[in-house]
Design a protein around this nucleic acid. Structure first.
Lengths: 220, 220
DNA sequence: CCAAAAGTGTTTGAGGTACACCCATGT
DNA sequence: ACATGGGTGTACCTCAAACACTTTTGG
């Protein structure tokens, strides 16, 4: 105990957020090895030698969740108390945001059993992953208020209604259409593409794109 | 390369902020072992077996910087590329805020050579510590805007002028006295102690205390 | 009575909030 | 012609910003 330097295993845990069925959800995978077989967990990857932390996180995202090149950001670093005392585990948590046009139904094509769970309805999860998911959720909600995170849920081009919808779902309250548009356009982070999208029996919607894709801007 | 799981050494690096001589400064220590002997670095601690991450950070703060029970928060986790490829180092960075009444001059009483450096005037530092200090600085400035961090620089009781001074120094601009007072009092995070402090040839200042000491509140 | 910091109100402008109707399209 | 979501303007209110003088103390 104490004195001698600890050697640790390091893993990255990813909270993958997506907007499905008008709900904010996180993607979980079924554990496939003991001792937690068949319980749900966040997608994760063990850090391999020579590998960078972020590379490890992106690998986990790709291999276990089936997503590539989506926005990802480091969340927090936790320690995992292991059965074997003296061998520490360090878990660096990230969260990732998947644009809604890339959420395949019934799910991404990995070899794993995956499921999307609403943030009010998370199942019990291995290794304290639930509190990680909840922390990521709080962070996401907070960031809505002072950054352009919400744009990361949008495809390359999107309508203002779709964007407003994302805001409403994430912060859980209805917004006034006119005020939302005035506000978001005044911010100057999005611009018209010039195209429109026809969808159903209604007037076509103008399309917008982010001016600074894959970059988070601070607002106000 | 790849495949086999990496074992890592873990350390915590602490960015200790203090307000001295009307400047925001960070405390650095002289490295006392090779190969970086005599270059400046952030206070840091190697994680020992059985030790928690935060405990490790507090130990580093106590042993190397000489401070205890100050506000500390995790900042970010970095990887340290080492000379020996295959042995990863993970550095979990924290930042700490020291109330101005506890900044002994000429410095805290540890066995180490320490120095306070203004954030515009950081020396070159070992192991990429400079970018860590700068990230901590950005985070601190950002948090001023949406939380009560500034209170962590205050002693148990303080005057409104002292608090205003901290804001001015951290965000580097003068504030209007009346507007500042209206704003900070309306937030409701501080309250009068009932006492005053006489200092020099001037009217005594009313003292205030934090309502939620050692807790960060979000504002607006 | 002078120096030094503490303390205190009012006016103005910007931006956020509330609110209801017409438009373009497909069926 | 009707159903569906897309799109637009105005009045009000709240809060942030600008701004100058009086008060209390010690020397």
């Amino acid at each position: 105990m104490g004195r001698e330097q600890a050697y640790c295993t390091v893993s990255t845990d990813i909270v993958v957020f997506g907007i499905l069925e008008d709900k904010l959800k996180a993607l979980l995978v079924k554990c496939d090895d003991e001792p937690e077989r068949d319980s749900w967990a966040l997608p994760y990857g063990r850090l391999e030698s020579g590998e960078g932390l972020e590379a490890c996180a992106y690998r986990a995202l790709r291999v276990q969740a089936g997503f590539e090149s989506v926005y990802m950001e480091q969340l927090y670093t936790f320690e995992e108390r292991r059965r074997d005392p003296g061998v520490h585990g360090i878990a660096v948590a990230y969260y990732a945001l998947v644009p809604f046009d890339r959420l395949g139904v019934p799910g991404p094509d990995t070899g794993r059993t995956v499921g999307w769970f609403g943030l009010g309805a998370l199942p019990s999860m291995a290794r304290g992953h639930r509190k990680i998911a909840e922390m990521a959720h709080r962070r996401l909600v907070a960031k809505l208020g002072y950054s352009t995170v919400a744009l990361q849920f949008m495809p390359e081009s999107f309508t203002l209604s779709e964007l407003q919808n994302a805001y409403e779902i994430i912060q859980g309250e209805r917004l006034d259409k006119r005020n939302f548009r005035k506000w978001v356009l005044a911010l100057g982070h999005i611009e018209k593409t010039g195209d429109e999208r026809r969808a159903g029996n209604c007037r076509p919607a103008k399309l917008y794109r982010s001016r600074f894709p894959s970059r988070l801007e601070f607002i106000k």
